[in-house]
């Protein structure tokens, strides 16, 4: 059974993935997100940290079962076969969705949401383009989930955990009812997932936004 | 044994990954990159194509062993266990490097190389920042390869195939001898890989650039 300590900062959506995976797999995971164990911005910039984790990214799982630590959130190490996909087909599908979340969802989601959190300058053109990208992504998911409860196979896998976490800020901040109305399957799937006890234990109560958050100067 | 047709366009470095994986795994792979089988710019815009491959990205592997096709280059489907990593630890490591290539190497590599190919407008600040990122990446790889021939385990895996392909344009276009001098392990590893018969069959002779290509108006 995997075990370890996840060094992170509060509300880190990437750490949520590892935490939820551990809820499902039973991996024993400690969270270190406050001093003295770990202070974001200090600990992760210290030479000792950087010599172990050259990317300097957080969240970081310790110990990792190899000297090379790049998968900063350790989701594979903390998972079990059910989460990773128990057949070659399913595991290839899981990897597809994990890659889809990282490469197709996170860029436009961040471009749209960060200005509403006040952590990035607002750029109207970039936000409008990001909205179109998000529509395209939701349409792909909606189509796929038309005849499915979960993204891969018949139960929650790393695919659902990763894609839910990458959509989290969108649903909490900007996907107001009118915007999400054309994608009912995605909303159904998202709510099914976040209401699973394992998701709830980590995310708490997830409330879908009622009004699209605007740029927060 | 996996088999299929890879729809792509010539010189598509993403397709190289699948082709090299197939060379190692023995998967029977046909390449369709010219009309009438596939004309980039026409076929990939057709409704039939987009109804099957919602992302609209190329290269695309057909058939894919599930209706959901997101992993556009099908590297996992075309691989065997040796390429994917034959132990849980190794396979987690392979996934780390594949994710590292996509999330850490491709962004700065594109920012630096695209202007030199005339794909994008030159931006001095973005290029300088990308150079620093590439240095950081090469330093991480150089450190890791200090005591290793390949990235994971004792032989070529999907990690080497993916990272080599993500570095390909850097070595061919801009990593001139003075720039790559501080990272000898990476150069040694890169040359070892591209001189493997399986790599050579797909990439041909890879020549490292002698002079850093500049912005191509």
């Amino acid at each position: 059974m995997a075990a370890g300590t996840l060094y992170t900062y509060p509300e880190n959506w990437r750490a949520f993935k590892a935490q939820i995976a551990a809820q499902y797999s039973g991996a024993r995971l400690k969270i270190a997100s406050a001093s003295p164990a770990f202070t974001f911005g200090q600990t992760n910039r210290s030479p000792a940290f950087l010599s172990n984790f050259p990317l300097g990214k957080v969240s970081i799982l310790m110990p990792f079962f190899n000297s090379c630590v790049l998968d900063v959130d350790g989701i594979y190490q903390l998972s079990n076969d059910a989460l990773r996909g128990s057949t070659p087909q399913d595991s290839a599908q899981v990897l597809q969705w994990v890659s889809f979340a990282d490469s197709e969802i996170i860029p436009p989601a961040s471009a749209w949401v960060f200005p509403t959190l006040g952590i990035m300058q607002f750029n109207k053109q970039a936000t409008e383009q990001a909205k179109e990208e998000v529509k395209r992504i939701l349409a792909i998911l909606n189509q796929h989930l038309n005849t499915r409860t979960f993204l891969v196979g018949e139960r929650v896998s790393l695919a659902d955990i990763t894609v839910v976490c990458s959509l989290l800020w969108l649903y909490k901040q900007v996907l107001e009812p009118a915007f999400r109305q054309p994608y009912p399957n995605v909303t159904r799937w998202f709510l099914t997932c976040v209401n699973q006890p394992q998701f709830k234990a980590v995310l708490g109560e997830v409330k879908l936004c009622e009004k699209m958050a605007q740029f927060d100067a | 044994m996996a088999a299929g047709t890879l729809y792509t366009y010539p010189e598509n470095w993403r397709a190289f990954k699948a082709q090299i994986a197939a060379q190692y795994s023995g998967a029977r792979l046909k390449i369709a990159s010219a009309s009438p089988a596939f004309t980039f710019g026409q076929t990939n815009r057709s409704p039939a194509f987009l109804s099957n491959f919602p992302l609209g990205k190329v290269s695309i592997l057909m058939p894919f062993f599930n209706s959901c096709v997101l992993d556009v280059d099908g590297i996992y489907q075309l691989s065997n266990d040796a390429l994917r990593g034959s132990t849980p630890q190794d396979s987690a490591q392979v996934l780390q490097w594949v994710s590292f290539a996509d999330s850490e190497i491709i962004p700065p590599a594109s920012a630096w190389v695209f202007p030199t190919l005339g794909i994008m407008q030159f931006n001095k600040q973005a290029t300088e920042q990308a150079k620093e990122e590439v240095k950081r990446i090469l330093a991480i790889l150089n450190q890791h390869l200090n005591t290793r021939t390949f990235l994971v385990g004792e032989r070529v895996s999907l990690a080497d195939i993916t990272v080599v392909c993500s570095l390909l344009w850097l070595y061919k276009q801009v990593l001139e001898p003075a720039f790559r001098q501080p990272y000898p392990n990476v150069t040694r590893w890169f040359l070892t890989c591209v001189n493997q018969p399986q790599f050579k069959a797909v990439l041909g002779e890879v020549k490292l650039c002698e002079k850093m290509a500049q912005f191509d108006a």
Partner: peptide, 30 residues
């Protein structure tokens, strides 16, 4: 948490790069 989030390295321009690359190779392939 927002401050930490701001330090994440995100490839915001990825869609723009994807589009440029696609157009370039479509042009190259006539």
């Amino acid at each position: 948490a927002a401050e930490c989030l701001a330090q994440e390295r995100i490839w915001f321009d990825k869609p723009r790069y994807d589009e440029a690359e696609r157009q370039f190779y479509e042009r190259m392939n006539g």
